[in-house]
Computed example of a mutant assay.
Amino acid sequence: MSVTTFRTATAAILLSVVAFEPGLALAAEILPFETAAFEKAQADGKPIVVDVAAPWCPTCAAQKPIIEKLAADPAHADMQIFQVSFDDQKEVVRALNAQRQSTLIAFDGTKETGRSVGDTNADSIAALFASTKGE
């Protein structure tokens, strides 16, 4: 077996172990907003970001790849991101006091740590995500 083949085989084995390790989270969970799941994440003291968005909103569309990139970062592996439909979940929108679509709300458990509206700057959205861990 050549060194290159050995390295490739070793890398494949390591990736398969990491990929199938039970309980090992490599990315934040992105979930549709459900009150019970949100309240459980808060009670568990999880870092949380709530994304209030609408499919017709160009600002929301600009935020989406930033949120997905941050969600994929292992630094946010224990985070839960809840997506609220601005159009279809009006009661939740009101309860969160979200006046507009493109609202991002960060929580460290039950404590709100930050909020932004209409922000498409990757650095400030990353800072909002970081605020969920008291950073």
Rank of each mutant, 00 (worst) to 15 (best):
K46C: 05
R7I: 11
A126F: 01
A122V: 13
L15K: 11
P74A: 04
G23K: 09
F107L: 12
T10Q: 06
Q89W: 10
A43C: 15
A11R: 05
I13T: 14
L70I: 00
D44K: 11
R7A: 10
K133V: 15
D123V: 00
A54E: 12
A72Q: 06
L24M: 11
V3D: 10
A11S: 03
R115P: 06
I48M: 09
A37P: 08
H76I: 00
S2M: 04
F86R: 09
A27K: 12
P47G: 15
A77W: 04
A9K: 08
T35D: 13
T35P: 07
K40W: 03
N97L: 14
M1E: 13
K64A: 13
E34M: 05
A61V: 10
A98D: 03
L24V: 09
C57F: 02
A36F: 02
D123A: 05
E29H: 07
V3L: 12
L31Q: 05
L24G: 07
A126W: 00
A43Y: 13
A53P: 01
K90G: 07
E68N: 08
A37H: 11
Q42M: 06
V117E: 05
G45S: 13
K90M: 15
A61D: 09
Q99S: 03
K133P: 02
T120Y: 01
M1H: 10
V52G: 03
A98N: 11
I81L: 07
K46H: 10
T113P: 02
R115K: 14
Q99C: 01
I67T: 00
V17M: 03
E34L: 03
A130K: 14
V3Q: 13
E29C: 02
D108V: 03
L96R: 10
S2L: 01
A75Q: 10
V3F: 11
A72G: 08
E21I: 02
R100S: 14
V92G: 09
T103I: 07
A75E: 12
A126S: 05
I66A: 00
P22C: 10
F129P: 00
P58E: 14
A28Q: 10
F33K: 04
R7E: 07
P47I: 05
E112P: 06
Q99P: 00
T35F: 07
E68H: 04
R115Q: 12
